[in-house]
Design a protein around this nucleic acid. Structure first.
Lengths: 178, 178
DNA sequence: CGTTGCATTGCAACTCGTTGCATAGTACGG
DNA sequence: CCGTACTATGCAACGAGTTGCAATGCAACG
């Protein structure tokens, strides 16, 4: 389970409440690892029971209390141990691929529409990633050592989304020709 | 749930037993949608109860009996309906990305080793896809209409694996320089 | 003859993640 | 004043998928 480790990374960078984490997952970290707030609360509870994180209730005025979580020494150890385990090959699951193979048995126009939508999604993410890169790392050779991971992940996102756009274009062109 | 639909596609192309399906998923279809044999048997059972597939026990000599599944009319309808529904955005999950963000808190050398392994996996898959393309579709402009889906999926695999290799190379180069 | 491996089906227990719902106070626009 | 939206936490039920195990019989290897 890598959600646990994604949370540990996020908390190692900065302590946060479950709510904060959910928003971070919606933004930066969620670009490569999605999680709903329910899942985050659930996992945080177990992680606290396991001693990987510790919480501190912070009262606020005008708002509900916050439970701010911080990573513990055991959590840092777990994170280091995680970095030492080899990543197992990722199971890729492409619903679009299933739909494409369903071409002879399905509705061609509907599938084309789906591909167009998918293309737009890839293009939007790509634009977002490129804007982030431009904004935070205008000079790639000057990226600090502690930002290196984030920068490389961003690069991965750009490469993946570019490939996604290219694929969709190829599909649309091929299907358009026939 | 798209496993159901991947099975329907596979059975629409040709009837098969659960065991056969598991092997197909290990080979062609599994390149974009993995499934274990247990999962396949479970889903097949439910699909039969739902009337999407029908089974026929075929005795064999020297081997256990086979339960050969065929798609039903209702199954074909379901497949057509599936092709009409828009695919929802895929949640990408990259364990490698989590490890990269863990760089400042983990073991750099171990992460580099992981990336090397991952690069080799991407390269192997890419070589396999390219060999398949060369073998089955030597002339892309001559791909038949009924093979179109499979061909486009193969192209998607090639694009994705190429992007994976490129990403790994970038990571290794960047980390090697520092 | 024993072991390993293939062919074939399946169950049980578990983890991971999703969906839907509940609660509760504050703030803001119409 | 009413509805909507944001901050904040969480439970319950379900569905999807993994891991581990079991059974049976044949073939091939050593």
């Amino acid at each position: 389970m890598a959600l646990e480790h994604a949370i540990l990374v996020s908390l190692a960078e900065r302590s946060a409440s479950g709510y904060d984490l959910a928003r971070r997952f919606d933004a930066s970290i969620g670009n490569f690892w999605k999680a709903s707030h329910q899942q985050i609360y659930k996992v945080l509870g177990r992680m606290e029971a396991d001693g990987l994180v510790a919480s501190d209730v912070v009262p606020q005025d005008g708002r509900p209390d916050k439970k701010v979580y911080a990573i513990t020494a055991a959590g840092r150890e777990e994170l280091a141990a995680f970095s030492r385990t080899p990543a197992r090959p990722e199971a890729l699951r492409s619903e679009l691929a299933v739909k494409l193979r369903a071409l002879p048995f399905g509705d061609r126009d509907a599938i084309v529409t789906t591909v167009r939508t998918r293309r737009a999604e890839h293009a939007a993410k790509l634009a977002y990633y490129e804007a982030s890169a431009e904004r935070y790392y205008p000079d790639p050779s000057a990226v600090g050592d502690d930002e290196l991971g984030a920068w490389l992940v961003l690069r991965g996102g750009i490469l993946a989304e570019t490939a996604g756009v290219t694929w969709c274009d190829e599909i649309l062109q091929t299907l358009g020709e026939r």
